[in-house]
């Protein structure tokens, strides 16, 4: 069973990249276009890990994290935040909001895959 990833990003380019890189890395990849879309798809996909962009229309990444962390059935679900900036305060904010970790865009293939493996039970 490959690890199932739900990647939420409003940029088609980033979605395609994540899909390509992660599929090549042996993951099962599902994508959503914004926070609402992601939350709606969550029960159907039941991912092992969620990767979410922060800045998105309708519901942003913090909204995604809040929603997931508030739901008991998703307790312990690892969430990675995609940040463009590597600034410390953004990381802190991601951490405070309940994210498991972060990935800095543009991501390095190996590092992205390594990060997901780091936080998921294979």
């Amino acid at each position: 069973m490959s690890i199932r990833v739900l990647a939420i990003d409003d940029s088609r380019t980033i979605r395609e990249m994540l899909r390509h890189t992660l599929t090549e890395g042996g993951f099962e990849v599902h994508v959503a276009e914004d926070g609402i879309d992601g939350i709606e798809k969550l029960p159907g996909i039941a991912p092992d890990v969620v990767i979410t962009d922060i800045n998105m229309p309708r519901m942003d990444g913090f909204g995604v994290i809040d929603t997931i962390r508030a739901a008991a059935e998703y307790a312990g679900l690892p969430i990675l935040v995609l940040t463009t900036e590597s600034a410390q305060d953004l990381k802190d904010r991601a951490r405070r909001s309940g994210a498991t970790g972060w990935i800095v865009k543009p991501f390095d293939d190996a590092k992205l895959i390594g990060t997901i493996r780091r936080i998921t039970v294979a």
Binding site: D10, T13, I14, M17, P57, T84, P106, F107
Partner: peptide, 17 residues
């Protein structure tokens, strides 16, 4: 304003890659 910001932000994100 948010939408305008996001448009530029997304271009930047992809361009970096």
């Amino acid at each position: 304003v948010n939408a305008v910001f996001r448009a530029v932000h997304s271009i930047k994100g992809g361009a970096a890659a």
